[in-house]
Design a protein around this nucleic acid. Structure first.
Lengths: 192, 192
DNA sequence: AGGGGCATGTAACATGTTACATGATTGT
DNA sequence: ACAATCATGTAACATGTTACATGCCCCT
């Protein structure tokens, strides 16, 4: 079977389950939401992966169009594989989250830099949350299984995440600056 | 200079800025918090990377101990590089977040599976949030620059994130089940 | 003296990225 | 007819992972 921690084939399966697409269309999909927020991939990894998946029976070519384009659809085996992967609770998975890494590394900056960095985060997360709120307001309620609504659960997830990050950044700033203010007060007191 | 999107050397720099360590100690560090929540790395990538970083003057060996152990410290150039990387706002960075990918792919599951999956998420996020809350309660307030407190900002970040995920999962469940209840009501109404 | 953990490394393999490459179709 | 975009691919390189490999030191 497929390795538990291979994400690209599963991302492709998910998209193909919702709606059959060509490699080219999948590539474009990865240039927008899914690629910018969840998993990046270029056509040079997508095309070989589709061929491999076709060999393994997870997808099949349902239509050949102009310019040699091939439309792929998920097979029954493909659906089963995505389901297996989603419910696979083997958390030996390797984390690789640059955002969170930066959060850890804030502790390695000196206080002024840390606060400057956090202000940037606060600003950025507020923007992103607002952006997603706008996107969600522009579309109707979420309907499971509606291809048009694909990714809206993820969008709401993102919106809440960004709001949480915003709150956290502001909290973190008060932690550091509050403490700095404290220190300068006590050092003045000691000095006098 | 170093590529903007290489995270391992920067993770190592961050740890070495806080406190000089050997490759072995760094490896162990990656087995606990930072490796489980932010960035995974094994000794087979850490040792070669340290050698490369030493060649490039980002770190230096400050002590050679028993069993051929070498203690590394960040150089001034290393500190500057970490700072540069932290503030590098070039967001051409490739996202690769399996968690978020799964959120996207929920839309590809049928409603029963989606709800089951979300229940799992709700449970897991509540557990993780509680775990971090406990960890945070057990340690004192955060003091910037205190090596003992390294990662506490990240811990609070994680706690808030998990709480947000929990709230989202419960909201998402009501979205789907509420909608399913609606549907069965209306189909009964249509049938009668 | 021997087991367990400390401490580092190399080699083969899998995966992913960048650069290079080609040709078909559509719209103007 | 020509430019833009559609549509797919290969090859060289960089990176990361797994398996294999070695030896030292400390404790009992």
């Amino acid at each position: 079977m497929y390795d538990a921690d291979m994400s690209l084939p599963h991302a492709l399966l998910g998209l193909l389950i919702v709606r059959p697409r060509s490699g080219y269309e999948l590539t474009k999909e990865f240039e927008s939401h899914i690629g910018r927020h969840a998993w990046a991939a270029g056509h040079t990894s997508i095309y070989p992966e589709l061929n491999r998946m076709a060999e393994n029976g997870l997808v099949e070519v349902t239509h050949e169009g102009a310019r040699g384009s091939r439309t792929y659809a998920a097979t029954e085996a493909g659906r089963a594989e995505l389901r297996r992967w989603m419910f696979d609770r083997d958390r030996s998975r390797k984390v690789r989250n640059e955002e969170v890494l930066r959060m850890f590394l804030i502790s390695a900056l000196d206080p002024d830099d840390a606060v400057a960095y956090l202000r940037g985060i606060a600003e950025e997360s507020a923007e992103k949350a607002a952006e997603l709120a706008k996107l969600l307001a522009a579309t109707g309620p979420i309907v499971q299984g509606d291809p048009e609504k694909f990714g809206l659960l993820a969008a709401e997830y993102g919106r809440r995440q960004y709001e949480a990050v915003h709150g956290w950044a502001e909290w973190a700033i008060t932690q550091i600056t509050g403490q700095a203010a404290e220190e300068s007060r006590s050092s003045r007191a000691t000095a006098s």
